[in-house]
């Protein structure tokens, strides 16, 4: 319960988060490899688009602000396996965050003709 409350608090403040929350020095290239090596791609998709049949939610575009992202990987809300400092450093997280931010957002559904036939 405590975890949920703490997370909720972070989410509530997320709206106020600003660009400087993004960690400096994240390497998108290294982050891309980590995103695969650490298994994030399995549940969230290589582009953070989310996984089918309840694997994991979308985490990109509009990712959570950096501190929330960090918190959610360390202390997930519910079903996600937690990644601790023992194996995944803050730098690793920052790199993965940089990778997500480096992705080109997909077009909106309304702009995809195939989705509107």
């Amino acid at each position: 319960m405590a975890i949920i409350v703490a997370t909720a608090a972070l989410v509530l403040t997320a709206g106020a988060a600003v660009a400087q929350d993004t960690p400096a020095g994240g390497s998108a290239e290294r982050g891309q490899k980590l995103f695969v090596d650490l298994g994030c791609f399995a549940c969230h998709g290589t582009h953070g688009q989310g996984g089918d049949r309840g694997a994991g939610p979308r985490i990109y575009p509009n990712p959570f602000p950096w501190p929330v992202f960090q918190h959610m990987v360390r202390k997930p809300r519910r079903d996600m396996p937690a990644y601790t400092e023992k194996w995944v450093s803050d730098q690793d997280l920052a790199d993965m965050y940089a990778y997500l931010l480096s992705l080109k957002a997909a077009p909106a559904a309304k702009d995809i003709p195939l989705l509107n036939r």
Binding site: G45, T46, H47, G48, Q49, G50, D52, R58, P61, K104, A106, P107, A108, A109, I112, L114, L115, N116, R117
Partner: peptide, 25 residues
Amino acid sequence: QKAAAALGWDASPVTTARLATEVWN
């Protein structure tokens, strides 16, 4: 559902939503 299907539309590997949409077409 459509909005969710659009996510990662141009990604490679191909998303399962894109795959299903192409097959429907």
